[in-house]
Design a protein around this nucleic acid. Structure first.
Lengths: 251, 251
DNA sequence: CGCAGAATTGATACATCTCAAGCTGGGTGG
DNA sequence: CCACCCAGCTTGAGATGTATCAATTCTGCG
């Protein structure tokens, strides 16, 4: 039967105008002439699910946008304890202008396509092109808010609240992509293994599994197979997250 | 004996040239004429230790730099669980351009002086002055790195490692202010109560107290009174943090 | 001197981790 | 085509680190 198709096989256009993340990525505010320049310093790279994009400490000669798929940022301690510190979705930015080495491990969680910009020319462009650096500032401030939300989760939430929060975040993102209404029942695949969820939530994978089972038993979520989730009542799920039920949601 | 002097009593110059944070704050890269403009939109505010600067959700018509003293950013859940998500030291930036309301509680941990810029004019200036927005981007990227380091601490470190990490961070900052050599014995005051440390570390204050006692008993730190700490061997302390002993330290 | 806030210390409870065994589903080789 | 295999997942039993509840003890200050 057909072998799994690896990510390298399909070619990609260099054309920024038809790019699916054109209006959300770091280039969102660029004018036509600026895009033409970006096209000269960019190249696409594809990774299969599970592949490592870069290791922490490796030299990194590019910065990039996630075009499709999901990647994670994580840190590992000497004895192997691991903490995910970023979940990168399409349009998110990877790398730090001015920094020659990766500060975190970057891993493709699904098949992944990245739009890479050679770091030197990109840095030059940032100096002269406010539309790039202003957009990057905005995105970085959003990421900082998300990181702080995550600090509350890691420091103070219970295992059950952590799982509910993660499911709610994935549900929200999925809903925003599919443009559903809010209160009807939502249904989507979890893009992470139990182990990756554990790394994200500061738990063990056994605890993740137990809490998912508990939320299922209590009717907060329904599972089809191991990855597919249905949310019968989104408000009920939000109650389980420990967050304010009324507004105030960032990112 | 003399009454505690409240923060309001000493007047302050508006002169940016003599500002103690001139070369580290958001204005670090400004030219003389840009400073002259900033002087027209800025004002100082003082807060006593313990005072709240703003509450999460409050309207916030300014952004600001910490001139002296220490402030914290924190989030509170409905049932009172609290997590600190930022520790603001002199030269750090408070507030988000473009956001009309505070996203976090901001509290003065010590007597505090802030240099506030009216938000509207500051945002206008950002659009036209790359030296401001580029510096802000750099500072925000640094904060994001610090937040991610903190996520590792919150998600994966033991209580003992958390305390050691906090003490090491305060020691490093103190050393960088005083320009000590690295390995000689360091000595400084903890700028936080046990409760504030607990909020920072995702622990209870009892656990903080116990772990400080344990590090003291093991000779990793020495205590004079409840707040003053001496580090006889900085490398020994770093070993207790769980971090890589060799290089790779961010922020 | 005595009070109030901050910190320490003790005893116990409990959430999560750890170690271990078994399950499930999809791909593969015989 | 079937049995096997393996990664991913679930479940169980017991260990352990931290929280919780409750007394004291410090310390600075009025």
């Amino acid at each position: 039967m057909p072998k799994v198709r690896t990510a390298q096989e399909t070619p990609l256009s260099q054309d920024c105008d038809n790019c699916p993340i054109r209006h959300r990525a770091v280039c969102a505010r660029c004018e036509a002439d600026e895009l033409r320049f970006l096209e000269t310093i960019k190249y696409y790279r594809r990774f299969d699910a599970g592949q490592t994009v870069v290791w922490s400490g490796d030299r990194m000669d590019f910065v990039a946008s996630v075009v499709s798929g999901i990647a994670t940022l994580s840190q590992t301690m000497e004895d192997g304890r691991r903490q995910m510190v970023g979940l990168l979705l399409p349009s998110d930015f990877v790398g730090r202008p001015g920094r020659p080495a990766a500060a975190y491990d970057v891993t493709a969680t699904s098949d992944l396509v990245m739009c890479c910009f050679r770091r030197g020319p990109f840095e030059d462009m940032m100096r002269t092109t406010p539309s790039i650096s202003q957009r990057l500032l905005e995105m970085t401030l959003d990421e900082l808010d998300a990181a702080r939300e995550w600090m509350l989760l890691l420091g103070r939430k219970t295992a059950r609240e952590k799982i509910a929060s993660l499911v709610a975040i994935i549900a929200r993102r999925d809903a925003s992509l599919k443009l559903h209404g809010r209160s009807q029942s939502l249904s989507f695949d979890l893009p992470l293994t139990r182990e990756a969820m554990a790394d994200y939530l500061g738990l063990t994978l056994e605890t993740v599994s137990r809490q998912i089972s508990a939320l299922k038993k209590d009717g907060v979520i329904q599972l089809t197979g191991q990855r597919h989730v249905t949310i019968p009542d989104f408000n009920r799920l939000v109650e389980e997250t420990g967050d304010d039920t009324d507004g105030g949601f960032l990112v």
